[in-house]
Simulated assay, not measured.
Amino acid sequence: MKTYRESMNELRFSPQQKQEMIDQLMNQSARQPRGRAIPLRRICALGAAAALAGALCLGAAASGALKPAAQAFGAVFGTAPAQTEIIDRIGRPLDARATVDGVTVQADAIIGDTYSYAIVYSIYREDGQPITADPDPNRDGALALRFGDWDTDVGHMGGMHGTAWFFDEDPADNAVQFVQLLTADAPLEPGTATVRLTDLKQGIGEDAALLAEGSWELRFDFAFEDSSLELPGGQSFTVNGASAVLNSVAVSPLSLRIDYTVETGLSSSSGTADSTPTPQPVFLTLTDGSRIDLTGFGGGVRPEGDSLRCELSGVFDQIFPLDTIESITIGEVTLPVNSQ
């Protein structure tokens, strides 16, 4: 399947190819922050809750052992006072856990907005021993650990893209952490998250060592405070000479989503397009003058009549208080944020 960038760079297709593009909406993200692998997840509600109920281990929210959201996400999104304040305000601590083969997986916290969410888990051995004697972190601190498979069902029927990795929040204890950052192609709804993780391993391919075998299954409330800001759309710009219009921009301290339409001049009876639009540069400009390139975010494209509907979206590498974001630039259009 093609990435967002590849789809945009190959914008010449027959009617049959148009249908294939529709089937390939929300392909795998091109974003690979900090060198971590990015699995594509299409998460559908399949009524699995009833089948899994007997295997679920739910922690009591009133146990007093909950980890504050800011602590759980500190190593992921930053620990500056402004970041901590926002994470604790819009994040939610969790206490759902399951133990298999002597290893416990515990959901620590969740944070999210209209289109994106992140979940942090802690993984530890019940006997107090470390998960592995040789965690082998890479230069960014990510550990060479992985699950054989993972799936998070939040009741969303569309596509999702994102990233996940392991890290060690506190080398002094015997736990390691696993974080998922995911973005949906349509607004998320509150409900129940059902998570299934299988076979904890170290390494890749046939050389991977099996550390714990089995399936960890957890359920918890999928709910958080949404602090997204919707910026006004309707601005016109050009993409390689083709007319385009910005449909909508949603930004929160956690993520960004941009939706725009390119008029390709390609109807259902056309065989080729007159031009080949390329991915538009996307920048976040902060009030301190710094500029962050987000062009590599993931997303998708789909034909709509004689035009292309394009989406670019993803989760930031850090929490950005909205009052620190000066503007968002997509191609020729710059939208102020601080004045909204």
Rank of each mutant, 00 (worst) to 15 (best):
254 L>D: 09
27 N>T: 08
215 S>L: 00
120 V>E: 09
208 A>E: 03
90 I>M: 07
226 D>S: 11
225 E>F: 01
337 V>L: 08
205 G>F: 02
253 P>M: 04
304 E>M: 14
334 T>G: 05
21 M>E: 09
105 V>E: 10
288 D>R: 03
261 T>C: 02
176 V>P: 00
19 Q>S: 11
112 G>Y: 12
119 I>H: 05
98 A>D: 15
2 K>E: 09
92 R>N: 07
88 D>N: 15
248 S>K: 10
340 Q>Y: 08
108 D>V: 07
118 A>R: 12
333 V>C: 11
169 E>W: 00
333 V>S: 05
5 R>F: 14
13 F>D: 01
295 T>M: 11
21 M>T: 08
87 I>G: 06
238 T>Q: 13
12 R>D: 15
81 P>T: 10
192 T>V: 15
168 D>K: 04
40 L>T: 00
21 M>L: 15
176 V>N: 04
208 A>L: 00
241 G>Q: 08
216 W>H: 07
182 L>C: 01
157 M>R: 11
177 Q>G: 03
213 E>I: 01
313 S>R: 14
3 T>E: 11
151 D>V: 09
264 T>L: 13
146 R>D: 10
270 S>R: 13
140 D>C: 11
5 R>I: 08
26 M>K: 02
163 T>C: 00
330 I>W: 09
131 I>L: 13
291 R>D: 06
92 R>C: 11
280 Q>V: 13
153 D>G: 02
212 A>K: 05
274 D>V: 08
260 Y>Q: 04
187 P>T: 04
218 L>A: 05
38 I>M: 13
72 A>P: 12
11 L>G: 00
7 S>H: 06
